[in-house]
Design a binder for these strands. Structure first.
Lengths: 166, 166
DNA sequence: GGCCGAAATGATACTTTGTTGCAAAAACCC
DNA sequence: GGGTTTTTGCAACAAAGTATCATTTCGGCC
């Protein structure tokens, strides 16, 4: 897909001199440590494969397709089978550590600010994704969902548009 | 996919005695007439294929995959090529007559209440989709989007959960 | 009516994304 | 250490979506 190619291109361009990458890597490390804690608390195992997938997602800070992940995890030798990636992703999503961006057919690690509702602002130009947890959105959703007698399960909203940079 | 099989099964079950189908068909016809008006206004053509796809979506009142549509449009003879369906869907989406439910890899006709923000409440059990246009959501989104300096393009929210029936 | 360019459809092959089923290996429990 | 559960490997497959080019249809124009 052109989308993924664009992601990579952008990623390579910004690799050397990405201003906000500084400070983001610490953030990713904190989130990773927190992820481990969550797994311990849930009594589940963050195995090497799962951890590596999660690390890659945090390091990229950008939605990655399952096949992109497979490639990223095998820079040298042979790559993991798709099903292995999908199983790792399934696990991460179950534990709330990652999320599938359906509109992009891609996956992204979540920063677990423990709010009820999370929205992803997806820039259509640069592909950047911003995770926000506005309380206003939580209450609005809660209200309208009550009005419709609907019990929401996944409270993730994907909003595509143009980010402040573009 | 199991999802599509489930859709069909549910559809067949409720075909005979679907309570809310009465009244819904008129609604669909109104929406169809309105769609024609929109196309005329836009100076674009609602060709037979496009119209049939739209009709099927309205009649089903449920997200349909592109391949489901291909099958539905060829009960007798040979079915349309995938690309034909996708082109029709692309057209309908461009004109705002249909929407792609990314989380379902499926497509659904929209009832054009001309609000800014549309949310789809997707029941994970029965597959029913309810389209709502709450003003509260519009303003909430507008606010937070302003706070993030983000210009949203597509204002469609997909919320999965459990509907009042299930 | 007949012609021409643009829009729409057909046909074919292909890519990307995700799944199924079963076997091997590793981790956990006692 | 033995048995069970969980995780990973492997191979084939299914589903969703796209690219390319040829053919037909539509709309305007003379």
């Amino acid at each position: 897909m052109a989308r993924l190619a664009a992601y990579k291109q952008h990623h390579e361009q910004s690799e050397g001199a990405c201003a906000h990458a500084i400070g983001q890597s610490e953030k990713a490390e904190r989130a990773l440590a927190q992820s481990e804690a969550i797994c311990r608390a849930h009594g589940v195992r963050l195995t090497p494969i799962r951890r590596k997938v999660l690390e890659t997602l945090y390091a990229t800070r950008r939605p990655l397709g399952a096949y992109d992940l497979a490639e990223a995890l095998a820079p040298d030798g042979r790559r993991l089978a798709p099903v292995t990636i999908y199983r790792a992703l399934e696990f991460l999503i179950e534990q709330g550590l990652a999320h599938r961006l359906a509109s992009q057919n891609a996956y992204i690690a979540t920063f677990h600010d423990d709010h009820e509702t999370t929205a992803f602002l997806i820039c259509e130009e640069c592909g950047d994704v911003n995770e926000i947890n506005p309380d206003a959105l939580s209450s609005t959703l809660a209200g309208l969902v009550q009005a419709e007698a609907f019990r929401p399960h996944a409270r993730f909203l994907e909003i595509t548009g143009k980010c402040s940079q573009c």
